[in-house]
């Protein structure tokens, strides 16, 4: 009874997908819908309309800001799910499911030295990618990943274990929610200024404010993304 049902369900899901894939335009087709509707407008008027010289940033934070809001919520939900699954119901309840090469191995002095040596440069690069994303490839997501990798490395050298965390847990939780919080704040500010959620003021004399709103979003995405990567690492490494 169950097997035919599974097969029918799979077929019902697969057939429309295969038909859809077969109907996709050829790669690079200039008459494809993706190239004939809004793309030309984004390329032509993106910088003027949004104030972001980088068209990807213009689409990400302005034309498709709702999509990006959804994306940061998905990333935050991923961390929330991992915390919900991993955290013990009672304190100290996970001592016996400790995988990996025992907790007794101290960090190698070579690795510690190299991490300390390169950390400032990695931090500078991450911040550069976040702030430079306004005018060139980069932005909050990419810079956040770089900063997140840096935090993971630093947690190997400076980490003090789950009992005495470097950042108080409530503060870390707020920072992990930085991206949704930034979107909520900027979105409500836009609502107050223009009457539309995540709207940006278009008047020329308010350009500085518009830039500031977009940079706030990028910094929020960057900090939130970095903290979420660190949170996933700390939750899943098993100590």
């Amino acid at each position: 009874m169950k097997k035919p049902l599974v097969a029918v369900t799979l077929a019902a899901a697969a057939v429309p997908m295969l038909i859809g894939v077969a109907a996709l335009p050829r790669p690079g087709d200039p008459t494809a819908p993706a190239h004939t509707h809004v793309a030309a407008h984004y390329i032509e008027a993106g910088a003027r309309e949004t104030g972001a010289d980088n068209r990807v940033t213009a689409v990400l934070l302005n034309y498709r800001a709702f999509d990006t809001f959804g994306e940061v919520l998905v990333i935050f939900a991923a961390l929330a799910a991992v915390i919900a699954v991993r955290s013990p119901a009672t304190p100290g309840g996970r001592a016996d499911d400790m995988p990996g090469p025992g907790p007794g191995l101290p960090i190698s002095p070579v690795v510690a030295f190299i991490i300390r040596l390169t950390a400032p440069f990695i931090a500078l690069f991450g911040a550069f990618v976040i702030f430079r994303g306004h005018v060139s490839p980069g932005g909050g997501f990419q810079g956040g990943v770089i900063l997140g990798a840096l935090l993971v490395l630093l947690s190997l050298v400076l980490g003090r274990g789950a009992e005495r965390p470097l950042l108080a847990v409530p503060l870390a939780r707020w920072l992990q929610a930085a991206a949704p919080l930034a979107f909520t704040g900027v979105g409500l500010l836009g609502l107050a200024l223009t009457g539309a959620l995540l709207g940006y003021p278009a008047e020329p004399e308010r350009h500085a404010l518009r830039e500031l709103m977009m940079i706030t979003l990028d910094v929020g995405i960057g900090i939130g993304g970095a903290m979420i990567i660190l949170g996933l690492f700390l939750e899943m490494r098993g100590d």
Binding site: P101, L105, S108, V110, V111, T118
Partner: peptide, 18 residues
């Protein structure tokens, strides 16, 4: 030149420790 020998060292050290 900095990162590659470091990662090799860390891998071999972890294997030796296990």
């Amino acid at each position: 030149l900095l990162s590659s020998p470091t990662s090799g060292h860390a891998l071999a050290r972890a294997a030796h420790h296990t």
